[in-house]
Amino acid sequence: MNLVELFNYIRSDPLLWGIIAATVFLVYVFSIGGLSIWIERKWAGLLQSRLGPTRVGPFGILQFVADLIKLVSKEDFVPPDGDKKVFKLAPIVLVSTLIAAGSIIPFSPSLIGSNVNVGILFLIAMFSISPIAVFMAGWGSNNKFSLLGALRNIGQMLSFEIPLSLSIVAVVVMVGSLRIKEIVQAQDQIWFFALQPLGFVVFLLAIHAEAGRTPFDMQESEQELMGGWNVEYSGMRFGLTMVGEYIHLILGSMLVVLLYFGGWKSFGFLPPVIWFIIKTNIALVILMWSRWAIPRFRIDQIIDIGWKYLLPLSILNLLITGALVSMGWFSWI
């Protein structure tokens, strides 16, 4: 069996192919995740007129490796009064569902883990599991701050999942397919952020809140919850929770690119994959920006934003899109 045959065999088995895609995604995410920690710190330094990490490697780019080594070598502490099994399982559930969600992301027309028919619906479904993982972490820690952080996380996720889904549905209605690949291909002539400005704004805010980034990071607000639902974690488990958050963020910025900025659609001179990664990173940096630019909201304000503003706006957006689609305005897509 030569390599081509092996590849074709793997390609023909959805299960194996999915596993491989997830692994590739995992590797990608770990590297980009590490990189994005560095980017974030540098970016934050830039915004706050300081240098950020400088010691390890050129421009401190290897800082995350040092962090990783530190995390791995730390004691794996499990709170003795907590629910140990649940506590240990939580980061795994969190990361594995998000990795599974990542397996359907198309990096280029040919580089897709699994081009499933339900596409983006699957992604939303996988996103919806992460509150459970967070609850498990908070509950298992047997720490009231963890639990409060977890509850806030759940409340926030539940309130922002609906506007998020509805703004995605508006795009889906326009394209007529749930497959992310087809959504990207539909953006041949024009990127959707121009056709869906309202939906884009709602989506951006909602994905922000979903990923739990400042200004929506009530779940881990250091000043009152000492770090939130993952406060009891240490060592590699803490690393996993952080990775989970970063995957969430990266998936979010990927979605922004895929749904509204033409995915891998390029201007020519570079291969589509590179374009996609570049765009994702730009989106990532923009998402990170708000952490240093905008102060944190109160939890009730966050919930208000979700239910009283984003939800009606997303419904309005969906209605408008539906009306325009039924009038045939987007038949050229």
């Binding site: 028919n117 339900v118 619906l121 699957f122 939303i124 479904a125 996988m126 996103f127 919806s128 599991i129 509150p131 459970i132 609850f135 759940i154 539940l158 999942e161």
Partner: peptide, 16 residues
């Protein structure tokens, strides 16, 4: 579709 909906509704909503 049902698989995705099952996960979305049952685990995501009912379970939570």
């Amino acid at each position: 579709f049902l698989g995705a909906i099952q996960i979305l509704i049952y685990t995501g909503a009912v379970g939570v």
